[in-house]
Structure formats: structure tokens, C-alpha cells
Computed example of a mutant assay.
Amino acid sequence: MTAPQPQPTAPALASAPQLDTARIRAISIDLDDTLWPIWPTITRAERVLLDWLTHHAPATAALFSSTESLRAIRNQMVALRPDLLHDLSALRRESIRLALTQAGDEPALAEPAFDLFFAERMRVELFDDAHDTLAFLSARYPVVAVSNGNADVHRIGIGHYFRHSISASEFGVAKPDARIFHAAATAADVLPHEVLHVGDDATLDAQGALNAGMQAVWINSANHPWPHDDTPPHATVDSLTALCRLLA
């Protein structure tokens, strides 16, 4: 009788490094889905855009008659213009221009249409504990926003909490590229290992910050497992309030 063969075991997950609060001299923090939920905002902005198109570009509104179709052509633009992947404003503007062109409307209407969309995109609803968290952090550290999105912290009304705000569209590269994290450290006038990065995305935020030599806290409100085989972040919390308790 053949002896049973041993079954392969999954590789053990590396243990999380210890968060060293004494090392923290600055905070970098993500925006979308860290300080506010993004998709309700985008959906509302797309509805406002569709209503505007109904009055100013009716052929486009008829051809792209739902927010889903507007989002589909925006996603199509990602494939058509991968050079714009880091610039969400340009992607959205050019997707509107493509929709207008396909429908036979005036492509120049893309500019005012995007301006309207972008203004609505700035009307975010912050998580209940976002203001208190930003006040807590900014009273203790220089805080730098680091985002792949196109939110403007000053137009949103939270710019006074931040030493600086870095967006992928302006910087030219997006998270998880280490260069955008290092730019945040430079903006705060500290070294990368002296920065604690906070964000909701396991790959773009937590893993990206770790690879850039920073400490990282992953805000994991949905209690997802860490999705990578390599080292997990220094800490995982379920809310901004929990982040403040961690750093108090």
C-alpha cells in the first residue's frame, strides 16, 4: 500500500512589523475612500453630467442615456489612452469628448461638460470622523495628501489640514510608484522612513508605502484579509477613529 503523500502547505504570511510611533515625523494620507466614499460622489456627478448633456448635447444624451454608459466610455478611454492612466481628469474629459464625437455633437462641449462634472465631483460627503481625524493628525504632524484621484482638498474645504497635496495627475506617476511617496516625504521635509502613510487600498496605499520605505496603516473597514504574500502593514484599523486611538 502506497503511503499517503504529504500535501503542500500554503506559505506562511509574514508577520506584521511593529508600528514605531516614535519614528513618525509626518503623515501622508489617501483621499478617496479613505476620507470619503468615492462612488456615491462619482455616480451623482455622472447624473448631473447626463442632465447637462440632455440640454446641451441631446444626441449624446440619447446615445449615452445612462450613467453606466458614461462610465463604460470612460473605461474605454483607459484602453485607448493608457498614457492618461495617471490623470483621471484628462481621462474623464477625453471620454466626454469621445462621446460627443460619436454622437455627432460639438466636441468642444467637452470642456464645459467636464467643468460641471468636476465641480460636482468636489461635493464629497466626508466620513463622520474625517474632520476630527484630520484635526488630530494636523495638530501633531505635517500632513500631506497623496492621491491617484483628482480631488482638490482646497475646493472641498479641508485644505487647511494639509501641508501639501500631491495628485498623480499633477505629479505624473501614480501610487504604488515609490516616487510619489518620496515626493510626499520631501514636501513634509522628512525622510521616507519618518512618514506614516494611511490609506484604504491594500496595494496602492499599504504595499506601495512599505515598498517606498515608509510605515503604513491600512484602513480596512470591510475586514478583508491582507491580499499579498509579503509583509503586511505595520497596523490595520477599521476606521479613522481607530487610527487616532492608535496614534494617541
Rank of each mutant, 00 (worst) to 15 (best):
R92D: 05
D238N: 13
A12P: 07
Q5T: 14
T54I: 04
S66W: 12
V217W: 00
A212S: 09
W226R: 00
R245C: 02
H182K: 02
L243S: 01
D201Y: 06
G172E: 05
F117R: 07
A187S: 14
R245W: 09
A202M: 08
I180P: 07
I166T: 04
E194G: 05
L49A: 11
A235N: 00
M1V: 12
V198K: 00
L100M: 03
D200S: 08
A108G: 13
A16W: 12
R47D: 13
T2R: 09
V78T: 14
T236C: 04
V173L: 04
A16R: 15
A235R: 00
D205K: 05
A242S: 14
P232N: 04
E106Y: 05
T186G: 02
V146W: 08
T9W: 05
S28Y: 12
D177W: 04
R44G: 11
H234M: 04
A185K: 05
V198F: 02
T186M: 01
T101A: 13
R23L: 13
I96Q: 11
K175Y: 10
S147G: 06
H197N: 03
G208R: 02
I158K: 00
S69A: 14
S66D: 12
H160R: 09
A242C: 04
D229E: 12
S69L: 15
G208Y: 09
V173F: 07
G159A: 03
I29M: 02
P11Y: 02
A110I: 08
L240E: 01
W52Y: 15
D205N: 05
V237C: 00
R71V: 07
S95D: 09
V153C: 06
R121K: 09
R93Q: 15
T236Q: 12
W36V: 03
A184S: 10
M122W: 07
R93S: 14
L80P: 06
A12E: 15
G213Q: 03
P176E: 07
P112I: 10
P225W: 11
V124C: 05
A14K: 07
N150Q: 08
H131C: 00
R81S: 08
R71W: 14
G159R: 02
A79M: 11
A202N: 08
A130E: 14
V144W: 12
M1E: 11
H224A: 05
S69G: 01
T41G: 03
H182Q: 05
V124Q: 01
G104W: 13
A108H: 13
D200W: 02
I166N: 03
